[in-house]
């Protein structure tokens, strides 16, 4: 059995070696696939903060993914059509600048997470799952009926947005940007889990009553985790939209929420690299099985079922031989 530490290093190494090979072999499509994996991993690392650390089974994280996507879509749409986003009470112009878009995506999805989390956390358990799912649908239907930004057809962006000092049209440069963000967020999550806040959150998940007796508010701890989680998934949404140069209501769909959750489960819940491994496996399966059969989701379903029924701990758990994540 391999220690989880080495396994994590190996997973991370894949994110460096495969694109380097693809660059050498001139296979830009592989780089795009890896970019997709890195962005999915980022979205799932975000959800894992709520799900793994906070124990909040949110089936509505596509809301934040979609908000991030639309933040990018709407800002870039106004920039490419040279129309102001808003004229009153003050003028807001569109922008093609990634840092501005990212910040917008993070702030908006954090606000949405605050509102949704505040309402949903009045309940718990199954109610929480169903309510987050319902909020997801609410945003989904809203985006469909929002005809100013494409409605059901979505929005296309002609050229990828800019990042100072980089040529983001080069797949490898955009990939590097996504990977850097993923690594930074992984480091942040690692620090977060070991910070006083992370420890309190862990305790709030396990025994909320005890946390309350030492004078902390477990609901507030979970709400903060939910907001951080939503913000990270929102950032991933903005990157995903930029990768495809397209946003559509699909980003808000409940299948999206389900898939983000599936990444975590394939990899392993509450493990730092679980979502990363899961996203990698998912994109790999999507590419290879999808090439073999149009109905590859059947196999994904079977795999998922087997993991849930027999292999708690996901890929990392199976390989490292540890049922439960520690810490």
């Amino acid at each position: 059995m391999i220690a989880e530490r080495y396994l994590n290093a190996a997973i991370l190494a894949i994110f460096f070696i495969v694109p380097a090979w693809a660059l050498w072999a001139n296979e830009p499509f592989t780089i795009t696939l890896m970019t997709r994996a890195a962005i999915f991993a980022l979205a799932a690392v975000g959800l894992n903060i709520a799900l793994g650390l906070g124990g909040l089974v949110s089936l509505g994280h596509a809301v934040f993914f979609g908000i991030g996507g639309y933040a990018m879509g709407i800002l870039a749409f106004h920039a490419q059509t040279v129309t102001p986003l808003m004229e009153w009470p003050f003028v807001i112009e569109g922008t093609k600048s990634m840092p501005v878009i990212w910040l917008t995506a993070i702030v908006l999805s954090a606000l949405a997470a605050l509102l949704i989390g505040h309402l949903s956390m009045r309940t718990s358990g199954v109610y929480f799952i169903m309510i987050t799912l319902a909020f997801g649908q609410m945003f989904f239907f809203f985006s469909i009926s929002w005809s100013a930004y494409g409605g059901e057809d979505g929005l296309s962006i002609w050229v990828r947005n800019d990042f100072p000092g980089l040529n983001t049209l080069q797949p490898i440069q955009f990939y590097g940007l996504c990977l850097a963000i993923l690594c930074a967020v992984l480091w942040f999550t690692h620090r977060l889990a070991r910070s006083p806040f992370g420890l309190a959150l862990n305790a709030a998940r396990q025994v909320p009553q005890r946390v309350e007796t030492v004078g902390l508010n477990p609901t507030r701890l979970k709400l903060v985790a939910f907001v951080i989680s939503g913000a990270i998934t929102g950032l991933a949404g903005a990157l995903f939209a930029d990768l495809n140069r397209f946003v559509s209501p699909t980003m808000f769909s409940w299948q999206m929420s389900g898939e983000i959750m599936v990444f975590i489960i394939i990899g392993g819940v509450a493990r730092l690299f679980g979502p990363v491994a899961g996203a990698l496996v998912f994109v790999g399966l999507e590419h290879f099985l999808g090439g073999l059969s149009d109905y590859w989701l059947v196999y994904l379903g079977l795999l998922l079922l087997l993991i849930v029924l027999f292999g708690r701990g996901g890929v990392i758990g199976i390989v490292s031989g540890r049922e439960k994540a520690h810490g």
Binding site: I129, M261, L297, G301, L302
Partner: peptide, 28 residues
């Protein structure tokens, strides 16, 4: 039957997996 004593997360995922299987199977 195997899901009754598991937590809600497992139930959600296993039944999500069933959706994938049934939807794609029906499409097939």
């Amino acid at each position: 039957r195997r899901l009754y004593d598991k937590d809600h997360l497992d139930q959600v995922l296993a039944t999500f997996a069933l959706i994938l299987i049934f939807s794609e199977g029906t499409r097939w």
